[in-house]
Design a protein around this nucleic acid. Structure first.
Lengths: 207, 207
DNA sequence: GTCTATACCCGGATAGAC
DNA sequence: GTCTATCCGGGTATAGAC
């Protein structure tokens, strides 16, 4: 899909092709079992070829993760303009969060299971930030912020969306496609509940 | 710790020793890199010895996971009797949930990252259930259940606790020990907020 | 129940030719 | 930039002796 000539990548964009193939393989077998060797095999290049473009396996995985974050964010964005109130937008973003994980499961898993060292791959933090900001900007648009900081409420909602996502991926909502919608809907509702009782987020939890 | 004689396990309880050693190794290096070979080395037995007690690597890991669930549950239980109201107990359980993950991080991670096939290891589901029940029994003790089912509210709180836990382990709350308490406290407060607005969990999230 | 030995497969990574 | 060839390490699992 990226080379010009025959079956070889002599003059093609092997770097991009490796990223695409890595996504394919991760989607098929998960990050755990991903290897440069297999990616090379699938592309019909030698096992040493990737090292001309990535210093090691982790650098390729980091590039994949960045792309995954971008896709993730791209699927959250449309929700922001589709609802009127900030609260509804928050619910929609939470719903989209869970949906993304359900639809692009291996991609989502790799973001959290690849075991990439973020200090060695600073691009990852940058790629992740827009997602945090999607929640945060909605929270900031709420009237009456109350005592709770925007960051805390945004984090509560993101945590909840993330938590539902994990339960979904773990099978707690069953296997079929309806499970995705079910979990997504629950996350959306919980988000509304957190918004409603956000004043409690900044108080001692027990008397 | 389980054998009687010298450095060999000829007459010791190798099975139990393997589980203990696995926990050690997982605590040191995470599940990812755990191998039967290394566990054998550390115990001073041959690499083939474990196969007399476990059919394969996964069966040992499953046994470890069961033990991890038991410890997890054991740390939640004391919270149940320490607070008066059901809501406070829910907050306390959520707090303890996050704390467990913070204190026994590798153990917690293995429960969700080991990649164990639950259909092949039914013991896992059974070992997990008491934790779900800890949340559920508190919810059931709430006055005025409202329209939302107990299961839904319990799951919302567990999802939130789980989500905060993931953010904590991912470094979103910083590195030091205070991060654990911070995340745990946020989870506790969010639980109270969900209890307070639980009526919203059973309604459509957008009009 | 544990040993030794072995067969097997896999991955990461490098050197040097083209 | 890609190849071939190779080294090195690791893990899983089995066979057969004790």
């Amino acid at each position: 899909m990226t080379q010009g000539k025959g079956g070889r990548y002599h003059h093609g964009d092997l770097r991009a092709a490796l990223i695409d193939t890595a996504i394919e393989l991760i989607a098929e077998q998960g990050v755990r079992s991903f290897s440069l060797a297999e990616a090379s095999r699938r592309l019909g290049v030698s096992v040493s070829a990737p090292y001309a473009h990535f210093v090691d396996r982790d650098e390729l995985l980091a590039a994949v993760a960045v792309q995954a974050y971008e896709l993730f964010y791209a699927e959250l964005v449309p929700q922001l303009s589709q609802f009127q109130t900030p609260a509804d937008r928050l619910a929609a973003v939470a719903r989209a969060y869970v949906r993304f994980a359900g639809v692009h499961r291996p991609l989502f898993e790799m973001l959290f299971e690849a075991g990439l060292d973020k200090s060695r791959h600073p691009e990852l933090e940058a790629a992740e930030k827009p997602i945090d900001n999607a929640f945060l900007s909605c929270v900031r648009a709420l009237p009456d912020p109350g005592e709770t900081t925007s960051e805390d409420l945004a984090r509560a909602i993101e945590a909840t969306a993330h938590g539902y996502t994990m339960l979904l991926l773990d099978g707690s909502f069953g296997q079929p496609h309806e499970a995705v919608e079910l979990a997504a809907e629950r996350a959306a509702r919980a988000s509304l509940a957190l918004v409603e009782s956000r004043h409690l987020l900044s108080r001692p939890s027990v008397g």
